[in-house]
């Protein structure tokens, strides 16, 4: 059985590698991605029009806002799906009473986690907020923030993490993230422009049209980060306890 697994991996890998020959060359001027007017527009005009040095963030959160919005919705649906499949309510008799309650991973792991957890959370917020200037953004920062709660659950036990980030709060945060994103788009609609056209918001945000777009990207990234954080922690707690949410790993 292992041999067939190896064989299939080798065959699929060979097919994938042989398909890379059909890619355009690195930096080829005539390739479809480079010859069209879209890429050059992004490269030349992004910093001028949105005051965001990191082009990727501008494309992700502004020019392709619909795409990112529904990516966030996909993550939300994945989390909801995991809860719907795994979560079981009511008492489960198969666990003995003395095994309910999770004491964590020992003193040394707890001390280390209490030392590094604040810095991981601070770094996650930095990644969310600094996505305009360096690699980062809502998804990455959300994953780091969710990982910090997972670390708390691993070191101190799931009950401790649930006292910070209970199941109800998880779902509220997950929905709140999408609400912020969609609400920001509807706000643009109310201000008399298209859905997710941030330049309409310059009358209520300081700093002119360009800075309005920049600030709107930050707001949208915060929404994404909330959803990703909540769904990460929800997935971990459901998968590690088989949906009972009583005892961690």
């Amino acid at each position: 059985m292992k041999f067939f697994g190896l064989l299939s991996v080798i065959i699929v890998g060979f097919l994938l590698l042989s398909a890379t020959k059909d890619f355009p060359n690195w930096g080829d001027e005539d390739s479809p991605a480079n010859s069209g007017p879209v890429s050059s527009f992004y490269i030349e005009k992004t910093e001028e029009k949105t005051k965001v040095p990191n082009m990727v963030t501008a494309v992700l959160a502004d020019y392709r806002g619909y795409d990112t919005m529904f990516e966030t919705v996909v993550i939300f649906i994945a989390g909801i799906g995991i809860i719907a499949v795994l979560r079981t309510y009511g008492s489960n008799e198969s666990i003995p009473k003395n095994q309910v309650g999770d004491e964590g991973a020992g003193l040394l792991a707890r001390m280390t986690c209490s030392l590094i957890l604040p810095f991981i959370q601070l770094f996650a917020l930095y990644v969310v907020a600094h996505g305009h200037h360096s690699p980062g953004g809502g998804f990455q920062g959300g994953v780091m923030l969710g990982a910090s709660y997972i670390l708390l659950a691993l070191a101190y036990g799931l009950a401790r993490a649930k006292s910070c980030f209970s199941e109800k709060r998880t779902l509220v945060f997950a929905a709140l993230g999408i609400f912020i994103y969609v609400g920001w788009g509807v706000l643009c609609l109310v201000m008399g422009s298209e859905f997710l056209n941030y330049s309409a918001l310059d009358s209520i945000l300081p700093g002119g049209v360009e800075m309005a777009r920049s600030h709107s990207m930050l707001a949208v990234e915060i929404g994404v980060a909330l959803t990703v954080t909540a769904i990460m922690f929800s997935m971990f707690s459901n998968l590690s306890t088989k949906g009972r949410l009583d005892k961690g790993l």
Binding site: I116, F123, P135, M144, A147, I150, L151, L154
Partner: peptide, 22 residues
């Protein structure tokens, strides 16, 4: 630019080994 990746990688690496140990 790369130092941010390195911080994230180091932190998540600890998370992974802690989860595996438990």
């Amino acid at each position: 630019m790369f130092v941010d990746f390195a911080i994230a990688y180091a932190a998540l690496n600890f998370l992974g080994s802690l989860a595996a140990a438990r």
